[in-house]
Amino acid sequence: MALLEVRDLRVTFETHHGTVRAVDGVDLALEPGETLGLVGESGSGKSMTNLALLGLIPAPGRVEGSVLFEGEELLGRSDQDLRRIRGNRLAMIFQDPMTSLNPLLTVGRQLTEVLELHKGLARREARARCVQALGDVGIPSPEERLDQYPHELSGGMRQRVMIAMGLLCEPALLLADEPTTALDVTIQAQILELMQEVQRRHGTAIVLVTHDLGVVAGMADRVAVMYAGRLVEKGPTGPLFGTPLHPYTRGLLESVPRLEGAAGHALDSIPGSPPDPAALPPGCAFAPRCPLAEDSCRAERPPLVDQGPERASACPVAAAREEGAQA
């Protein structure tokens, strides 16, 4: 049985400018211990997808669809039921470790409360477990760290604290929303390595949200590419990076800097910018920026269609060309 099965997930906001479809019919599945990379430009709905799983979409957002987690439907459950799952079986860590920790409480207090809540531990036992948890994520002299405040730690240390916090109850699934975006490159690599190690040790499944394809290439088993609230392509990491099917994925891959690239070779970034989510074009949302766009693309939004083993893409034009080339 899949650990997580998301079907036709929709998150909408009614605003003065119209209905914003932040997430617009997303399907995802995740097996235990697996890593799914969720990539896309900023504003494409990655964070909203994750928050919807936890039932934490801010008001006035509306969530529809189905989220099966460990065989249970999460959407429409009472807040009380969800609170037992949050931070326990399903944990989330956030992008900016500077602002995502409470500046007025000690690191120890912010960690122990999780164990007190979900495991019913007394403060003293919880503290002992937290010392161990901080040690596990490579934080030196964890005992002292517990009595420090977040501002006394470096960015990398704070993100380690976040990760330790997320893993305290050994969740089955960890939602990591851009866990390394706010960190510099060397620290980034350390944190990713740490996450992989933790995953091996605990068998935690991870949804890794990022706009950095380099991060995904090294970590994810499978990748889902998101654009304007929809998945435009998904598939196993290797094949998806080797032969991207959707022009948006190709664009993303071409804009990644490469070491072996010829000096002076300009990075191809995708022209234009993502569409206004309150005023999406009627057809494919990527059509205005797409080199392959045809009239049919602008008329109707192409669905995500299976293409080959475990792969799917929402670009019929690219698929037709591929077939034409093979014939």
């Binding site: 609170r83 931070g87 409470n102 979900h118």
Partner: peptide, 21 residues
């Protein structure tokens, strides 16, 4: 603020989030 979202993501009840965080 962001850290309030973290507090909710831990599974804390709204009352605890307000009083403690």
């Amino acid at each position: 603020q962001d850290h309030i979202r973290t507090a909710y993501a831990k599974g804390l009840a709204p009352r605890t989030v307000v009083m403690r965080h």
